[in-house]
Design a protein around this nucleic acid. Structure first.
Length: 881
RNA sequence: GGGCGGUUAGCUCAGUUGGUUCAGAGCAUCUGCCUUACAAGCAGAGGGUCACUGGUUCGAAUCCAGUACCGCCCACCA
């Protein structure tokens, strides 16, 4: 046996064992005859770095996958990264900007070169970081959403849906991000209540020749800078206040353009002034009103959010600058009636935090109706479970109201839309330029390859990640529903569990279900476990700007990966936000050390075949076998319900309290004394079972100790050791030991009160003819036990274990008055308790309605209480003598 | 504005179909111990009117209704 340090040092073991696992390809999985257990990683952004959210998510994933592996399943965890269109592109743009380069100047091809360089440089860092955490991903299967095969899959699915008639190009009002210069989907817009102003503006009625009369109407708007794009003023047809406006025309302030007054029920009579300025180009609802009334669409804000020449005034000004300036101008011109403070929801871009500009533009859409209906059914039917269930409601609401998905993005980093335009503006959709040319020739036989221009836009990132559970195994399958799944896909799909955050339930989870049903005819996973958001201990989100997000690698360096994993899991229950506190990681480190030191004790035992097994050891061995089986069942139950932190806490207590504090102390030989072989072997056996049980949570320390526990051959690992199985046991064994433990606690309590050192041997009298596990009590409490009929005149302190009277003999140390007071108090409590029980039993309604078992129990309480009262009274009598 | 979830010890949370002495766990706190595996430890102790108000019931932390507060999702009444 090698010497073990007094403290566990994670640094000395973690890298060593990770390298060992890799060298032996323990993480690698190939289809075989065993039952598969599959997880696909929620692919982190390719240029991202590990944050606490990743730590939580991937720790959970790793616990599940390691558990499944030890349960005998063929476990496969597929890792990879996401190209993250907007996030990556904006990072590259920023980097180039710092060098004074604008992407427009260098062009698409050159820009993509830079982007790939960036990806090569930063891509995959996060995967290396996951290794530090101990994640047992099948690295041979690492995928990237923009690698050629997966990009082909994306293009093929686009073509597939286009041919199916579900993808269309349309001019729609989209959410325009003026900073990223791209449209974003509805889900990427975050509405925040924003303080602004409500400007009441006078629009003078025209005399018919474009000249103002002295009559006017008043509109209220939050966006005065858009008045130049007004196409009409709209009132509710039922609004009597505005009947006089019928058929009138009004003049837009400052520019005096004439616009009609129209009527539409959309206008709320009791909101604002009841007059709405209709600006079809810059408001979603106004656009719809414009369609109904055939109004012209005049766009005055450009892609960058600046006013263009069509605005006539304030040309070139940013929309927010223009707002301030135009208010002043309106005030000077006498059109500004009043300004109110107003708070209203404003849409912001999730990625850039820019205020979203509703903008009319040509975009590609995927019809959601059928996909959403199917995917809703997948969850409602329970083929895919959500943990916690509350997210089903959220999911249902979204699916029932899903709008067509805007899948085009005005970016370069991503899969380019496979639409090819002919010179006349017609287009064809095909997977390759060659196929496109053929199709184009069907329209116009004279078309040459160079006449075709491919669409400039790329596809939304989620349009590739929704294929992830399929494409990581067989990229040929999506887009080709007739294609026979390859061996991997046939074996690993559907995957089992998905662990992810609720923030991407629609972006990703819902859409993976759609793609799974569409291309495989089967749900992509059976369970979705939603984690919470990791917050700091006072509840703030982790963020770079707040600086409250620790670097996980520093934590791993300081405390070890096992400690970090424990720390995260301790405070995580499904669906609840996580309040991260470094104290929890310290607790994890303390647990590592506890395990380490218990091993030091066990390995330090001297074994001597000539030594007889002590009665206490025999009892403890019998008890721990039962305790272990009992706990194993509990742990399995927790895992089956995804109560991972409960499972961890259950094992934690089994190891620390039951094994270390009770079992080891009970079997531990006196200092310098050897232990008998049977006890030694059982102790090692239990220790090994505990290591296996906790291995999914703490992979490194368990491997280290397991390897040292016995002679191991190269290539052996705890990773594939089977999970310990519960065995049948006699519940009386547990009950008896816990009675003994209560007696021990009673004695210890007395020691504490009376300030008696643990070493000092005491006498414990137990009234009665028998009591279980007496040798354990003697060993653990440091007493000699004597069963007696009566305590007689002995001096000391008494206590009770349930209905059993006990008495610690102590000459001279007893304060009789104190003892009397204690007994008196206890007596009063018991009498009150008895009263309550008897009142219940005297209640005819209770006796008539309650189940027999409950009544029986009340009777037992009554009897127990009576017996306690009897002995307390006797005790008082003898004390008072 | 609509929907969903929550409120239990100082903190983070359990509490399964209402019924065992059910009011719990971990951490934190307090007291005593450097006892020969471990002071990242050992032993002991204190701490809650289960948000509030009503109701159902023999019996409510648990079921129902209302109130208050917190959180999340959806939704651009300009």
């Amino acid at each position: 046996m090698k010497e073990l340090a007094a403290k566990y040092s994670a640094k000395d073991v973690e890298d060593k064992w990770y390298a060992y696992w890799l060298a032996h390809k323990f993480f690698h999985s190939e289809p075989n005859e065993k039952q598969p257990y599959t997880i696909v990683i929620p692919p982190p952004n390719v240029t991202g770095i590990l944050h606490m959210g990743h730590v939580l998510n991937n720790t959970l994933n790793d616990v599940l996958i390691r558990k499944a592996r030890m349960d005998g399943k063929n476990a496969c965890w597929v890792p990879g990264t996401d190209h993250a269109s907007i996030a990556t592109e904006s990072k590259v743009v920023a980097k180039l900007k710092a060098q004074g380069i604008r992407k427009e100047d260098i062009g698409r091809e050159e820009f993509l070169k830079h982007a790939w360089e960036w990806k090569e440089e930063h891509g995959g860092i996060i995967l290396q970081q996951l290794k530090k955490l101990g994640c047992s991903c099948d690295w041979d299967r690492t995928r990237f959403t923009m690698e050629p095969a997966l990009s082909d899959a994306v293009i093929n699915t686009f073509v597939y849906f286009y041919k199916k008639g579900w993808i269309y190009k349309g001019v729609r009002m989209v959410n325009w991000d003026p900073e990223a210069l791209t449209a974003v989907s509805d889900d990427e817009v975050i509405h925040k209540d924003t303080k602004s102003h409500f400007y009441h503006l006078k629009y003078f009625i025209s005399d018919g020749n474009g000249n103002p009369t002295d009559k006017y109407l008043v509109i209220a708007t939050t966006r005065p800078e858009t008045i130049m794009a007004d196409a009409a003023i709209c009132v509710n047809p039922k609004d009597e206040r505005h009947f006089w406006l019928k058929g009138k025309k009004v003049l837009i302030p400052l520019i005096n353009r004439e616009i009609p007054v129209i009527e539409d029920e959309y206008v709320e009579m009791d909101f604002g002034t009841g007059c709405l300025k209709v600006t079809p180009a810059h408001d979603v609802h106004d656009y719809e009103i414009g369609l109904r009334h055939n109004l012209p669409v005049l766009e005055i804000i450009d892609d960058h959010g600046k006013l263009n020449e069509k605005a006539q005034i304030l040309v070139g000004e940013d929309r927010f600058v223009a707002r301030k300036k135009i208010v002043k101008m309106l005030e000077e011109s006498g059109n500004l009636l009043k300004v109110e403070d107003y708070t209203s929801p404003v849409g912001y871009s999730e990625r850039t935090d820019a205020v979203i500009e509703p903008k009319l533009s040509a975009q590609w859409f995927l019809k959601m109706e059928s996909l959403a209906a199917t995917a809703l059914e997948t969850v409602l039917s329970g083929r895919t479970n959500f943990i916690p269930e509350k997210y089903i409601n959220t999911y249902r609401h979204w699916m029932e109201n899903a709008r067509d998905w805007c899948i085009s993005r005005q970016l370069w980093w991503g899969q380019r839309i496979p639409a090819y335009y002919l010179p006349d503006g017609k287009f064809v959709v095909a997977a390759t330029a060659e196929e496109a040319l053929q199709e184009a020739r069907a329209i116009n036989p004279n078309i040459k390859a160079e006449d075709l221009k491919q669409d400039e836009d790329v596809l939304d990132t989620w349009f590739s990640s929704w294929l992830w559970p399929i494409s990581v195994f067989d990229p040929e399958k999506p887009g080709h529903p007739d294609h026979q799944p390859n061996k991997d896909l046939a074996y690993y799909y559907p995957t089992n569990d998905l662990v992810t955050g609720p923030d991407i339930i629609f972006f990703w989870v819902a859409r993976m279900i759609m793609a799974g049903e569409e291309f495989m005819g089967k749900e992509p996973f059976s369970n979705v476990y939603f984690t919470g958001i990791v917050r700091d201990k006072i509840g703030r989100k982790m963020s770079k700007t707040l600086g409250n997000s620790p670097n996980p690698l520093d934590l791993i360096d300081t405390y070890g990966a096992d400690a970090v994993r424990i720390g995260m899991l301790l405070c995580s229950s499904a669906g609840n936000d996580i309040f991260y506190d470094e104290a929890q990681i310290k607790q994890g480190a303390a647990f590592c050390n506890k395990i380490w030191n218990s091993y030091r004790l066990v390995k330090g035992f001297q074994v001597d075949a000539a030594v007889a097994q002590s009665p206490a050891a025999k009892l403890a061995i019998e008890w721990f076998a039962a305790k272990l089986s009992d706990t194993l069942a509990l742990v399995e139950d927790h895992y089956s319900k995804f109560r991972i932190s409960d499972a961890l806490m259950t094992i934690y207590k089994l190891f620390w309290d039951d094994y270390c504090s009770w079992y080891l102390e009970a079997i531990k030989p006196a200092f310098g004394q050897p232990v008998d072989p049977e006890t030694y072997n059982k102790t090692l056996e239990y220790f090994e079972a505990l290591l296996k049980l906790i291995h999914p949570v703490m992979p490194f320390i368990t491997e280290e100790l397991w390897q040292d526990l016995a002679e191991r051959k190269e290539g052996e690992t705890i990773m594939y050791a089977p999970t310990p199985k519960a065995e049948a046991f006699d519940p009386a064994v547990l009950e008896n030991f816990s009675l003994a433990a209560e007696a021990v606690n009673g004695v210890r309590s007395v020691r504490n009160q009376k300030n008696i050192a643990p070493k000092e041997q005491l006498h414990l009298l137990i009234k009665g003819s028998s009591f279980p596990c007496i040798p354990v009590i003697e060993k653990m409490a440091g007493v000699n036990v004597e069963l007696v009929g009566e305590f007689g005149d002995a001096q000391g302190v008494g206590f009770m274990v349930r209905t059993q009277e006990m008495f610690v003999k102590m000459d001279g140390l007893v304060n009789v008055a104190e003892e009397i007071e204690k007994a008196q108090k206890e007596l009063e409590y018991q009498q009150k308790f008895l009263q309550g029980v008897r009142a219940k039993l005297a209640n005819e309604n209770f006796v008539a309605h309650a189940p027999a078992a409950v009544i029986e129990n009340e009777r037992k309480k009554e009897a127990d209480s009576l017996s306690k009262i009897e002995s307390l009274e006797a005790k008082l009598k003898s004390l008072k003598k």
